[in-house]
Computed example of a mutant assay.
Amino acid sequence: MNLTDRVRRLCRRYTLDYLVMILGAAVYALSVSFFTAPNEIAPGGVTGLATMLNHLLDLPIGATALLLNIPLLIWGAIESGRRFIIRTMIITAAVSLLIDLFSLFRFAYHGDLIIAAIFGGILSGVGLGLIFLRGGSTGGTDIIARNLNHQLPYLSIGSIVLLSDAVVVAMSAIVYGSLENALYAVIAIFTSSKLIDAVVFGLSRDNGKLMIIITALPDEVAAELTGRVNRGVTVLSARGGYSHLPKGVILCAVRPHDAYRVNSAVIDTDPTAFIVTTTATAISGLGFSI
């Protein structure tokens, strides 16, 4: 593959990535503007905090969420690197803009709170799933979880996100003066998490993925994976059965939503690499327990 073809292929892939992520941002913004925020449901995260500030101070949710994300984005740039944070900044800005844009329309749902929580969770899960599917992030608790996982690898990212959301939901019970609103937020979070899983890796109940990468550039690919995806890898020496040329076999265990980023990082480094992705029903170890 010559340089021109490779550049063309990368441009097509990045264009598709951002189109899918912007679509996901729009769907997520709809969940906030039309279902959760108008019904005083704050389902965790920075957006949940912004929803409560909107209730208390009448501040725009999107702009407030963006301001709250700025220090987290700076922290994320220091810990996670430029490539991750650029995507996160773009998607965070898009989500914030779309939330405030959709809020200008006066046809939000006001009615049964259980319907608001369920459909808010469905749209939130689909939107976030599309963003995660293409290697993006909406910032907020995702940045907090990744950065704390760097410092405290014995705490899983999922556990940190769950704790952060629990704190926000508990605060919402106080802000809205209603335990029911907090319980509806839990329903929205649960629904959202199930839809994220369905969008990112189908309707199966896979707990993790084991990716086996056969490449002629094992050192370069391994460096790219540890830098971009922040996952440890194991490199084995091998040789091609037909060519008898030396090869490297890289083993990498990831969460399902990270599989796309691993695949992209490998192909960007070695377009000729051979990648096998298989289900791992249980993965445990330092910084990784699912």
Rank of each mutant, 00 (worst) to 15 (best):
F107E: 10
I99Y: 03
A108I: 03
Q151R: 15
I114K: 13
I131P: 03
F119D: 14
I160D: 00
D100M: 02
I115Q: 05
N149R: 13
G127S: 04
S159V: 13
T138W: 01
L152G: 04
H150E: 12
G120H: 00
T141H: 05
R146A: 05
L133Y: 08
L128M: 12
D100G: 02
L98G: 00
L133Q: 07
L162W: 11
G140V: 12
G121R: 13
D100C: 00
D142L: 15
G140Y: 09
I115R: 11
A117L: 09
R134V: 13
F105N: 05
A117E: 09
L162Y: 09
I157V: 15
R146G: 03
R106Y: 00
L148H: 01
D100V: 02
G158P: 04
A108N: 07
F105G: 04
G120L: 10
H150G: 12
S124G: 08
L104P: 02
L113F: 05
N149H: 13
N147C: 15
I160N: 12
S156Y: 02
G125Q: 04
Y109C: 04
S103A: 10
G139H: 04
H110W: 08
N149P: 01
R134W: 09
A108Q: 15
I144T: 10
D142G: 07
I99G: 01
